[in-house]
C-alpha cells in the first residue's frame, strides 16, 4: 500500500528549530489531523511535504520515491500530486470561480494558451463537475471576491481536486470560517477522503473538530511529536499540555 514516510525531518529557521527530528508513516486513505498550538510547526510541516520550503535535513518519501531531492519537472509533478488548501484560501480574488478552479491544472498540464485563460472543454467540464459536487456550480462565473468565506474555501477545494491529487494537505482550512461553514467544509474534506480514498493531512487548531473528523491525530509541540494515535487514546492531560490551555 502506498504511503508517505517521513524520516528524522529537521527544519531550522536561522535561530529557531521549527521541525525537530520528526518521523511519521501515513498510509493511503488515512485522514490525519495535526494538532498543536500556533508556532508548534504544523504549517511548516505541510510546506515541507509540498516542498514549498526546503528541509534542513531528513527525508520525505512517497511510494518509496524520495521527495526532498526532486527537481524541475518532477518537483512540479509532485506538488500537483499533493494538493494544498490554505487558511486564507489564497484564491485569485479578482478572477471568476471557474478560472480559479481551472488554475489547478497549471501544474499537471501547462500550456501557453492557459495564460490567456483558454482551457480545454474537457477541463472545463471537469471543473464544473467538482463545483457541482460542492454545490457551487451556479457561482461558476461570479468573481471570487464576492463569495463568502465558506464558499471561497470550497472553491479552493475544487481547485485542489482539479490536480487529481494523491494527497490533500489542508492548512488550517476552517480557522477563518464560522461554525456552520466550518462544518460544511470539513464534511466536504471528509467526503473526499472516504469516497475518493485520498490521503488527507489536516492542520487543525480545534481539538473538538479534529476528534470528530480524523481517524488519527498527531500532536506537535515545539517541532516534536508528542502524540500519535487514535483520537480516543488522547488523554485530557495530554490535550491540555498540547494547547497550554485549560479549556480549548
Amino acid at each position: 500500500m502506498a504511503s508517505l514516510e517521513i524520516n528524522s525531518l529537521v527544519k531550522k529557521f536561522s535561530e529557531t528549530t521549527a521541525i525537530n527530528d520528526i518521523s511519521i508513516r501515513i498510509l493511503d486513505g488515512e485522514m490525519v489531523g495535526i494538532i498543536g498550538k500556533s508556532g508548534a510547526g504544523k504549517s511548516t510541516l505541510m510546506r515541507l511535504i509540498n516542498r514549498l520550503i526546503e528541509p534542513t535535513s531528513g527525508s520525505i518519501a512517497y511510494n518509496g520515491i524520495e521527495i526532498t531531492s526532486l527537481k524541475g519537472k518532477n518537483l512540479k509533478q509532485w506538488r500537483s500530486k499533493c494538493a494544498m488548501i490554505f487558511q486564507q484560501f489564497n484564491l485569485i480574488d479578482r478572477l471568476d470561480v471557474l478560472t480559479n478552479v481551472l488554475s489547478g491544472t497549471l501544474g499537471i498540464n501547462f500550456k501557453l494558451l492557459k495564460l490567456l485563460k483558454i482551457y480545454s472543454k474537457k477541463e472545463k467540464i471537469e471543473a464544473l463537475t467538482y463545483l457541482n459536487n460542492l454545490d457551487l456550480s451556479d457561482k461558476a462565473l461570479q468573481r471570487v471576491g464576492t463569495l463568502s468565506g465558506g464558499q471561497q474555501q470550497r472553491v479552493a477545494i475544487a481547485r485542489a481536486m482539479m490536480q487529481n491529487p494523491s494527497i490533500l494537505l489542508a492548512d488550517e482550512p476552517i480557522s477563518s470560517l464560522d461554525p456552520k461553514n466550518s462544518k460544511v467544509v470539513m464534511d466536504d474534506i471528509k467526503k473526499i477522503n472516504k469516497k475518493d480514498g485520498i490521503m488527507v493531512i489536516c492542520n487543525l487548531h480545534s481539538l473538538e473538530i479534529a476528534k470528530e473528523y480524523c481517524d488519527r491525530l498527531i500532536g506537535l509541540s515545539d517541532g516534536k511529536i508528542v502524540f500519535d494515535g487514535h483520537p480516543s487514546s488522547l488523554t485530557k492531560e495530554l490535550a491540555e499540555q498540547l494547547y497550554d490551555l485549560e479549556n480549548e
Partner: peptide, 20 residues
C-alpha cells in the same frame, strides 16, 4: 499568497506571474 497557491499546484514561474 496566491503565488504560493499556484506553486503548490506545481505551477511554473510564468503561471505564478500570470495568475498570482
Amino acid at each position: 499568497k496566491t503565488c504560493e497557491a499556484i506553486r503548490s499546484h506545481g505551477g511554473n514561474w510564468v503561471s505564478e506571474m500570470r495568475y498570482g
